[in-house]
Amino acid sequence: MDKVKFSFILNGKIVAAEPDLYSTLLDVLRDYFGLTGVKRGCEIGECGACTVLLNGKAVCSCIILAPSVENCEVLTIEGLTNKELRLFQEAFITAGAVQCGYCTPGMILSAKSLLDCKLDLSIKDIKLAISGNLCRCTGYEQIVEAIHNVANYLKQKEVF
């Protein structure tokens, strides 16, 4: 099987990998870098469990061939700062937004990509931002509430 060497910035660090030609970004993140926070749900880009940020934008890592991210910045849930993580944890857990938790890392990254752009959010904005992340447990409402609470907090605090 042909291998392809490439390097990129993963969670703030420059890394290199040499996976099989047909490996997806999801495969490389989980199997090569051990970042199991990126989840496998459908492998066709329809559930969002594998969502990561690519150059700050939410994408499904299962439908990106790994070498395509050459020289790009990739952020997984493991790459959040401690402050960011804590913020999301408190908001999500308090709102009841975490049941089985499988969709959660993907949800948070989709939320982060929205929050990094604007904090003056309507409920519709939030629902749109997570519309590519399927959740079978919560029915979304408490997730939307959690993200809204994070936005409100950040508006006040300008933590990042």
């Binding site: 999301f88 999500f92 975490v98 499988y102």
Partner: peptide, 19 residues
């Protein structure tokens, strides 16, 4: 509304599912 203890790891992506 006591908070779920397992949720901290789930949010952080640290919870271990079989895969």
């Amino acid at each position: 509304s006591v908070l779920k203890e397992d949720a901290w790891d789930k949010v952080a992506g640290k919870a271990q599912y079989v895969e």
